[in-house]
Amino acid sequence: MQKRIALSVPILGYTLPEHVAFAKEAEQLGYTDAWSFEVDGQDCFTPLAVMALSTNMRLGTAIANVYSRGPATLAQSAASIGELAPGRFEFGIGSGSQPIIEMWNNGRFIKPATRVKEMVQFLRPALAGERVVFKGETFQVDGFRLSQPPPSVPRIHVAALREGMLTVAGEVGDGAIINWLSAEDVKKSVAVVREAAAKAGRDPAEIEITARLMVNIDPPGPEAELMRKRHINAYLQVPVYKSFHQWLGRSETLRGMWESWDAGDRRGAIANTPDEVVDDLIVHGTAEQRNEHVQRYLDAGVDTAFLSWFTFEADPQKRRELIHKAMVEMAPRK
């Protein structure tokens, strides 16, 4: 399968209209795709709509979560991007996390693997323009049909962390989306996906493995080291990511970090965040070191790596300059 280096969008500090020029330049530099995310800023579909009309990039959601939008709404949103970018849209879905679903969207984060699997089972016929009657454990749909299905049915990728969701990706997904893991961890995750696909009678080699890589582009120094540890804690204290890294085998390595956090000692949690974990999970360093780190992910089994550049620089103009510089330095075609 072709190895691809992609953008992670939206790019923080850039307005949506500014994404047009950024994406055009990125495409000229050899970036093949743009994959979107949504947390507490822009949604995952609108940036892709902007880029669909200004580039010939492949576009993907990574991810649209399956709780905050209903089944029909998800299908409609995907159909719209599919019409704007026929044959170029990859539909990534996933469960999201407890804070996003329960604290911000007043939902219930229950049976995530079942919910995602059932959503794939609903979306395939729905995006093909069929009338769908679906009765699952987590939702039901009675008689929905898209009045304007996309010209071509987008492939569906499943975002996965632990074994249960990785198995769902292998069983029913066209791809598996992974993140917040080391290059070495990739091998364990991919093995679960491939094995599940084989057991389901599918060709394991046809499952695309995509990954969002967190890339810190700040100059080296104590302040950047401290902020990277804070960034690690912002994610790995979330229950789904904590469980994920326990599954990966980091229970003892991160015990001090988690125990300090649970005791309300935020400074202690940061102090107890091992340097080697930061180095494994966050791409950073010189441009050469960053590119070498990305290559390790590709060598370990990632097919498409989307680079999520971040900086702790407070000045907006300097932030933009750092991001643009990183885009050029890490371009596939330099």
Rank of each mutant, 00 (worst) to 15 (best):
V39S: 11
A331N: 02
R290C: 11
P316T: 08
R145E: 15
T210I: 11
M257E: 10
D279Q: 12
R319N: 05
R162Y: 03
R194T: 11
Q148K: 13
L12A: 02
A64H: 03
L84E: 00
A300S: 13
P332T: 06
K325C: 00
E25V: 09
W35Y: 15
G285K: 12
K229F: 13
W258A: 01
D280A: 14
S243E: 13
G301T: 05
A85Y: 09
A211G: 08
L236D: 06
M227G: 02
P112F: 06
E171R: 14
D43S: 02
A224I: 02
V215E: 07
N106F: 12
P125C: 08
V133Y: 15
I93L: 07
G221L: 03
F45G: 13
D43P: 01
A305L: 15
E184V: 10
W309E: 06
K187Q: 15
D275S: 10
H284W: 07
D40P: 00
G129T: 09
A21M: 09
H157N: 14
I232T: 07
A52N: 14
Q42C: 08
L7E: 05
Y241E: 10
E27A: 08
S251P: 03
F244I: 01
L12Y: 08
A224P: 02
I270T: 11
R88I: 03
R267D: 13
F144E: 12
E171D: 10
S77G: 03
D275W: 00
M1D: 03
G96E: 11
L29A: 13
D43Q: 02
M330C: 03
P222E: 11
W309N: 06
S243M: 06
T32Q: 09
V9E: 03
T167F: 03
D315W: 07
R88C: 07
S54C: 08
A113E: 10
Y14H: 01
I282S: 12
A269V: 06
E195Q: 15
N106I: 05
K199L: 12
W247D: 08
Q28Y: 07
R88D: 07
R250G: 00
I282P: 10
V278H: 10
Q148F: 12
P332V: 02
A196Y: 11
S54F: 10
L123Y: 10
G96H: 02
G96R: 04
R108N: 14
D315R: 13
L59H: 15
S68N: 08
E25C: 01
G170Y: 12
I110L: 14
T273A: 10
